[in-house]
Design a protein around this nucleic acid. Structure first.
Length: 619
RNA sequence: GGUCCGAUAGCUCAGUCGGUAGAGCAAAUGGCUUUUAACCAUUGGGUCGAAGGUUCGAGUCCUUCUCGGAUCACCA
């Protein structure tokens, strides 16, 4: 091919649409998508809508072509299908990644371009020869005039053809694309090509998922910008991993000789900025957490955090709800309802309910007629409920029988080794015959066990009680919150950066937003009293010393910042990836992150030449 | 980390009881001047994820490992 056209990877190709010698669509705008959208109405004007398999009449076609033939177009794109060659003429579709446009090449009409000289090649058969060498996936540029084929498809009648780039790997299956999730994520570029070239698909293509993600994010930025917020960038590498409860990634700075942590949250930096006078501030960027991977967890994930002075927790819920609604509409193209698996999620109405009310409302009353809401105010009952609401296990030879609070049973096959790791407390109240258990009996067992402990004097401190309330909430309520719901009135002790409620010193002015059982946002009235903040950090350090690895780390400089005076403010963090999952009907966070983290591919060649297979592996 | 499932041609997938490695698409060659999942004919393409074992014989059975998926545990 080099002999015919010179360089196979030319630097540039100028696109345009010309009418009567005048450029009407210039290079950067003359994408296949734009040209198609420009030309289609012209075709439609002459050819009314056709039924499946119906062809336009000769009169319709002649009328359309009389107008369309006046437009010369220069377009470029990837061969979206293998060329359909028929003797001395051929059809093929070009794609710009979004739309596709058919081109028609007739041997006697087409000339090739030499990439080195930019001149058309005199040899009559050159273009046809080059066309014969094209593969599915190659990039070409063509010049010609618009027309409509016998079947009514808008096409370009090609007069010059220029080779632009080679696809050396074969394209994925044109009908099926790539269906192996491992290949989709590892070779995202190929997945994206496949999704843009695929002829038929169900739901959103991979490309459309990330387009929707981009629209959601730009919608959020626009909403915040319009509301007077300023976007900032705070450190990714921080001397202390604080602002949230999570395990960090650790690294080392050589010149300063200090350890640094990839940030787990930008929260404390953003609040320093409210001290500094940024009354409305946001950051939309990555957080890093060195924890397990799951469909809902990726080691790096995107968070939108923003803070607004002179706003409280209720104002923040109003504002966040408005922002999410508007950006969801931007992302979906206007709809507030999305299908997620079996569920229809409606963003037009966000519920608000306190954590304790949610527990009361969702408690399986028919199973547990004895339950009284007052129990949630009583330490002994809270401890017993937490234990009771946790799935209860009973041994079997080959695994565990799990009894859920709603009465459903599951069987978990497990090895002996794994069985031995289950905390012993789970079995204290159970025999090895799971079928004989009734929930009332379980409750009595849980209650009596806790009562015994209580009487022993091993009373839990407040943080323990609050953790148990949260646990009850997680066990009973969380997965039932399908429609967007703000859970309010969080226990204070598990909200170390949040202001206490003026009415109840044990309750924080805090909320979390749940959608489809997933925590999607977390916000509160920001604690701005340096003295109290210091004491809250001290409590956290106390839990940390007691073994809670996730307790928050003290940040003295943040206390100093607060001592300069921080205005009353509310803030929120919104998990972007999870929201995108909901809007795109994707059930793994890895499907909404372009390049999710995977175990490295094994290098088969290296394996062959190096270790003998006998070598035992180490973890 | 536990459990279950999966890995076969570039892609999507069959492969029965343990007995010669298969199809469609893609690729190559030839034919065809308005096709559109084009069509017709011919051809090439494989260390069946890796290593070991059982067997006269292994894609298939067993063990270990690698990677992935689902799920539970952990974790915001």
């Amino acid at each position: 091919m080099r002999d015919l056209i010179g360089d196979v990877y030319p630097n540039k190709y100028r696109r345009e649409v010309i009418q009567d010698g005048q450029t009407i669509i210039p290079d950067q705008q003359a994408t296949i998508t734009n040209v198609t959208r420009f030309a289609r109405p012209i075709k439609d004007k002459h050819i009314s809508e056709l039924l499946e398999g119906e062809k336009p009449s000769d009169e319709q076609r002649n009328a359309a072509n009389a107008e369309l033939n006046g437009y010369r177009v220069r377009v470029a794109g990837r061969l979206a299908v293998p060329p359909r060659v028929m003797g001395k003429a051929a059809f093929v579709h070009l794609s710009d990644g979004i739309e596709r446009l058919q081109i028609y090449v007739r041997k006697q009409d087409a000339k090739a371009v030499n990439n080195d000289t930019g001149e058309t090649i005199d040899d009559e058969g050159a273009a046809w020869e080059i066309f014969g060498l094209l593969d599915h996936g190659d990039f070409i540029g063509v010049e010609g005039f618009l027309f409509v084929t016998k079947t009514g498809e808008l096409s370009v009648h090609v007069e010059t053809i220029q080779f632009l780039s080679k696809a050396r790997f074969p394209m994925p299956d044109k009908m099926h694309g790539i269906s192996d999730p491992e290949l989709q994520r590892r070779y995202r570029y190929a997945d994206l090509i496949a999704s843009s070239l695929q002829v038929e698909h169900e739901g959103l293509t991979t490309r459309q998922v990330f387009e929707r993600r981009a629209k959601l994010i730009s919608g959020m930025r626009r909403f915040l910008d319009d509301a007077g917020f300023i976007e900032v960038e705070t450190p990714m590498l921080t001397p202390k991993a604080t602002g949230a409860a999570a395990k960090p990634f650790k690294t080392h700075h050589n010149a300063l000789d200090i350890d640094l942590y990839a940030r787990i949250a930008p929260e404390l930096y953003l609040k320093r900025l409210t001290v500094g006078g940024f009354e409305k501030v946001y950051e939309l960027n990555r957080n890093f957490r060195n924890e397990g991977l799951s469909q809902k967890h990726n080691p790096e994930f995107t968070m939108l955090e923003f803070y607004c002075a002179y706003m409280d927790v209720n104002g923040m819920m109003d504002f966040a709800e408005a922002m999410i609604k508007e950006s969801v509409q931007k992302a979906t193209g206007g709809s507030l309802q999305v299908k997620y698996g079996e569920n229809e999620i409606d963003f037009s109405n966000f519920g608000r309910i306190s954590m304790k009310e949610a527990i009361v409302n969702n408690f399986p009353i028919d199973r547990m007629k004895l339950f009284k809401p007052e129990w949630l105010e009583d330490e002994l009952h809270i401890m017993a409920l937490a234990m009771f609401s946790d799935p209860q296990f009973a041994y079997a030879n080959d695994g565990l029988h799990k009894l859920n609070i709603d009465g459903t049973r599951e069987f978990l096959p497990m090895s002996e080794k794994e069985l031995s790791k289950i905390p012993k407390i789970m079995f204290d109240s159970l025999s090895s015959e799971p079928n004989f258990f009734e929930l009332e009996e379980l409750w009595n067992n849980s209650f009596n066990l806790q009562k015994e402990r209580y009487n022993n004097g091993s009373r839990q401190p407040q943080v323990g009680i609050d953790n148990q309330i949260e646990k009850i909430f997680e066990n009973i309520v969380e997965k039932k919150l399908i429609q967007p719901t703000f859970i309010i009135d969080y226990p204070k002790s598990i909200s170390p950066l949040s202001k206490a409620s003026p009415e109840n010193p044990n309750i924080a002015e805090r909320f979390e937003l749940f959608i489809n059982g997933m925590e999607c946002a977390n916000g509160f009235s920001e604690l701005n009293d340096p003295q109290e903040q210091y004491e809250r950090f001290a409590d956290q350090m106390w839990s940390r010393e007691a073994g809670d690895e996730e307790a928050m780390v003290l940040d003295e400089d943040y206390i100093r910042a607060l001592a300069y005076g921080m205005p009353p403010a509310a803030g929120i963090g919104i998990g972007i990836d999870r929201l995108v999952m909901l809007l795109t009907n994707r059930h793994s966070i890895r499907d909404v992150i372009l390049f999710p983290h995977m175990r490295p591919e094994k290098n088969k060649n290296a394996e062959k030449t190096e270790d003998a297979p006998e070598n035992q592996t180490t973890t």
